[in-house]
């Protein structure tokens, strides 16, 4: 077989695998948009559900998901970045380090329903937060911590050692070096980790089912100790638990969930680009 032919075959296979990834994604999104766009109205987005959720809007579920995502990020980001800084900048690479790394990798592989059970046991029952936004956000934070730690670690490792050396050689302390040189340079990568985390936190159903979500709660949560509705769980309910649910509401809910995740992605991407520009300046 000659080289050109091999080249063509390799190119075709790789193009095919790329299409295999892109086409279903586009189809799924396209399908949901097509089926759901008709449902989206001002009322659907801002009104309380009525008549066993078959009419009215999904406002409490949207607000619940927003609160959950923000709460999750508020817990997971500082904790995750802090752990990553410790692991890359301070920890000596001994047995303990390897054990911690192994634990993080394993955590990333734990099924989300197990996190839900853990959250139920620890936050809801043992710590007495009850079924609440707080318990849900903490549980989701545990779920996305491995993602954020791993991404932040990679980002920190990619900061050239020569920057650290230059800073330390100028008489800066280690913490000053991390603050002024290492973190700014690692920020785009850390934000990428946060983006991935947000995507997961917004879309997970099992953990919130056990820790926060209400089946039907036509009012907004007043505090972090309140139960709340949330989009993924609401989607599950309207799709399987309520008889005679109009088809378009299901797709409407799915589309709103996609939209919210999309908006978070867009914000995070904008932050990422801003940090990248700052690094170049």
């Amino acid at each position: 077989m000659n080289k050109q032919l091999k080249e063509k075959i390799a190119f075709s296979i790789l193009t095919f695998t790329m299409l295999l990834v892109v086409v279903p994604t586009v189809l799924i999104i396209g399908f949901i948009v097509y089926k759901g766009i008709g449902t989206i109205s001002w009322e659907f987005l801002t009104a309380m559900p009525r008549k066993g959720m078959t009419e009215g809007g999904i406002f409490p579920a949207i607000v619940g998901t927003l609160y959950l995502v923000l709460g999750t990020i508020a817990f997971a980001l500082p904790l995750g970045i802090g752990s990553a800084i410790y692991l890359t900048e301070y920890a000596t690479h001994g047995k303990l380090y390897k054990l911690i790394r192994l634990a993080i990798l394993n955590l990333a592989g734990v099924p989300s329903v197990v996190y839900g059970l853990f959250g139920l046991g620890l936050f809801v029952l043992f710590l007495g937060f009850g079924s609440s936004l707080l318990a849900g956000a903490l549980t989701l934070a545990c779920l996305i911590l491995p993602v954020i730690i791993t991404a932040s670690e990679e980002a920190l490792k990619s900061v050239p050692q020569s920057y650290r050396e230059a800073s330390l050689a100028l008489g800066a302390t280690k913490w000053q070096t991390i603050q002024n040189v290492v973190l700014p340079h690692a920020m785009p990568g850390i934000v990428t980790g946060a983006i991935l985390g947000i995507g997961r936190a917004a879309g997970e159903t099992a953990p919130i089912l056990l820790t926060v979500a209400a089946f039907f709660l036509p009012r907004l949560p007043k505090s972090f100790f309140d139960q709340a509705m949330a989009l993924p769980y609401h989607l599950y309910i309207v799709s399987t638990q309520v008889p005679n649910m109009p088809e378009e509401i299901k797709y409407g809910v799915a589309l709103v969930l996609l939209g919210i995740v999309g908006i978070f992605f867009a914000i995070a991407t904008a932050i990422r680009i801003k940090f990248k520009m700052a690094n170049r300046a």
Partner: peptide, 19 residues
């Protein structure tokens, strides 16, 4: 930290900060 303020260093490859 105080020592490194008295003894400065320049490295093999120019390594200005991206600032």
């Amino acid at each position: 930290v105080a020592l490194r303020r008295r003894v400065g260093m320049v490295f093999q490859k120019p390594n200005p900060f991206p600032k």
